[in-house]
């Protein structure tokens, strides 16, 4: 089993609904976020191109944050979800430095926090909160090993890219062109 997410950049409008839905679902304090939007504009008026990307932790197969965590608080669970055990986290910030995606932040309560792929929902067979709220239906989640999962179906016949492939992290958020 390999959980992954596909973001259809042809459809994302950069509305940040995924951000606020994550904040309310996961009690992310204001001023912090687990997912965020990047706007990429290319060209010059009037020959322009623009894409929005909804970004979050890439739940990397080869996760530098897990490798560098001195206490083992950062770890990988079944399905490849990268998690932080709050009680074991000493807030040293090594993982924050090592993440090529800037996906982690120090929660005001002292531990490091980031996207959990909404494991509390996924465990119950539901989609992550951001996926279920997106008004453009551009986020797709599921098990890459299952050809009938939403994410596999969304990626079929589409070309995609990942962020910072040169970092060798084998990220699991796929951006559909």
């Amino acid at each position: 089993m390999r959980y992954a997410m596909a973001v259809d950049t042809n459809k994302c409008v950069g509305c940040a609904d995924c951000v606020v839905a994550c904040q309310t679902e996961n009690l992310v304090p204001n001023g912090y976020c687990r997912d965020w939007i990047v706007e990429n504009v290319e060209g010059a008026y009037p020959s322009l191109d623009m894409k929005f990307q909804s970004e979050r932790c890439n739940h990397c197969e080869n996760a530098p944050c897990v490798r560098c965590c001195p206490t083992g608080a950062s770890h990988i669970v079944e399905g490849g979800i990268v998690l932080v055990t709050h009680d074991e986290c000493i807030g040293c910030g090594a993982c924050i430095e090592s993440c090529p995606y800037d996906a982690r932040y120090v929660h005001p309560e002292g531990y490091v926090d980031k996207c959990t792929f909404c494991i509390h929902r996924v465990d119950k067979g539901e989609n992550p909160a951001c996926v279920d709220v997106c008004p453009t239906y551009c986020l797709h989640f599921g098990d890459l090993d299952d050809p009938n999962s939403e994410v596999s179906k969304a990626m079929k016949d589409r070309s995609w890219y990942v962020l910072a492939p040169e970092a060798g992290t084998n990220p699991q958020i796929y951006f559909l062109r």
């Binding site: 509305c15 609904d17 951000v19 309310t24 279920d132 709220v133 997106c134 008004p135």
Partner: peptide, 24 residues
């Protein structure tokens, strides 16, 4: 804790916009 769309609603199809989600 949160506000979530009603899937049977033709105006939202179960998905609120960011303002509706943040209406809390």
């Amino acid at each position: 804790r949160k506000i979530v769309g009603n899937p049977n609603d033709p105006n939202s199809n179960g998905r609120l916009c960011p303002r509706g989600t943040g209406g809390i």
